[in-house]
């Protein structure tokens, strides 16, 4: 145990992986809280998939694996995807559910086309882009962590700054509008911040598992508290814990890939919360119901015995 702690601090690889994963957990935990409360959890899934062609196009334009342009490409593609999503929902008979699926899968398909095209064309850079598919938390280096910290820090600062406005927007957008807060502007800002979380997540857990990083911590945190502020902090904590646990587990057991392990750790937290959180826990509810049924049965039996009912 103490050895592990020492590794966590002094082992260059583990430290970066754990720090990077924890940062992702915190940022996606915070922004996921708003996404889940606005019932937009799966938007993150769509944004993550839609980012792939952006990364490829950025690579084709710049011809380098430099982080910043690739992440910028991911962000822009995510935005274009969101715009098309809105267009489909507003202008056609198709539901939001269909629109999410359409944007997610076709953008990703186009991304795969570009990715394989790039890979065939110049083999040397192959490993560079593939990591965005499954994420390569295990390969995070110090410069990645620094970029995460800057991006995440800006996102969190904005959430802190607009905490009230986001709360109002999420709870009662119409009332927010009547007070003169530009609800469209606020929505755009919030979605952009979710894009930031997705961009951080792509490198760590990859396209498919990003949905879990946004939804899981928030869904778990919601069970423990009835206060938005507490929920956000808890959600960040759950995200961070899952990140560190995943990083450590996959460090000690080589055959465990980091991203999936983080998500599995998170899933355990989610189900434990659903089952055992005070007040909202399903186990307690089941127990209460059982007690009620028992008391009721006892009462009926008593009434029967006393001859009140037959």
């Amino acid at each position: 145990m103490s050895e592990l702690l020492r590794d966590l601090i002094f082992d260059y690889t583990l430290r970066n992986v754990a720090l990077g994963s924890a940062l992702l957990g915190i940022v996606s935990g915070v922004l996921g809280s708003y996404a889940v409360l606005r019932r937009q959890g799966l938007l993150g899934d769509t944004l993550a998939h839609a980012a792939l062609p952006g990364i490829c196009i950025a690579f084709l334009i710049t011809g380098s694996r430099a982080q910043i342009p690739l992440l910028l490409g991911a962000g822009i593609a995510g935005w274009v995807g969101t715009m098309i999503l809105l267009l489909i929902v507003r202008r056609t008979v198709l539901s939001e559910d269909a629109a999410l699926g359409i944007v997610l899968s076709t953008f990703f398909g186009f991304g795969v086309l570009l990715l394989t095209f790039i890979n065939q064309r110049d083999d040397a850079n192959q490993a560079g882009l593939d990591k965005y598919l499954f994420g390569q938390a295990a390969a995070l280096i110090e410069s990645d962590v620094i970029i995460f910290a800057i991006l995440g820090g800006v996102a969190l600062a904005l959430v802190l700054l607009f905490y009230q406005e986001f709360k109002l927007l999420t709870f009662d957008p119409e009332f927010a509008g009547s007070l003169g807060f530009g609800t469209t502007k606020l929505s755009v800002l919030l979605t952009s911040l979710i894009v930031v979380a997705v961009v951080i997540g792509l490198q760590t857990v990859g396209v498919v598992l990003m949905a879990a990083m946004l939804i899981g911590p928030a869904a778990a945190a919601r069970q423990w508290t009835d206060r938005l502020g507490v929920m956000i902090v808890l959600s960040a904590a759950f995200g961070a814990v899952a990140g560190v646990v995943g990083a450590v587990l996959s460090f000690t057991e080589e055959r465990l890939p980091t991203g999936p392990t983080i998500v599995l750790a998170l899933t355990v937290i989610v189900f434990a919360s659903l089952a055992f959180a005070p007040a909202r826990g399903l186990v307690w509810e089941w127990w209460r119901r059982r007690q009620q049924r028992r008391a009721w049965a006892l009462e009926v039996a008593r009434l029967k015995a006393e001859g009140h009912v037959r």
């Binding site: 009230q164 709870f171 206060r227």
Partner: peptide
């Protein structure tokens, strides 16, 4: 028009009425 399962209490909802006068960013 709103989701009443939102994690907040009655006092907090009522305080939202003061946000308009407070304007952007300032805390109640």
């Amino acid at each position: 028009s709103v989701d009443w399962d939102f994690p907040t209490n009655a006092l907090d909802v009522v305080m939202m009425g003061t946000y308009g006068r407070l304007g952007w960013i300032r805390r109640p």
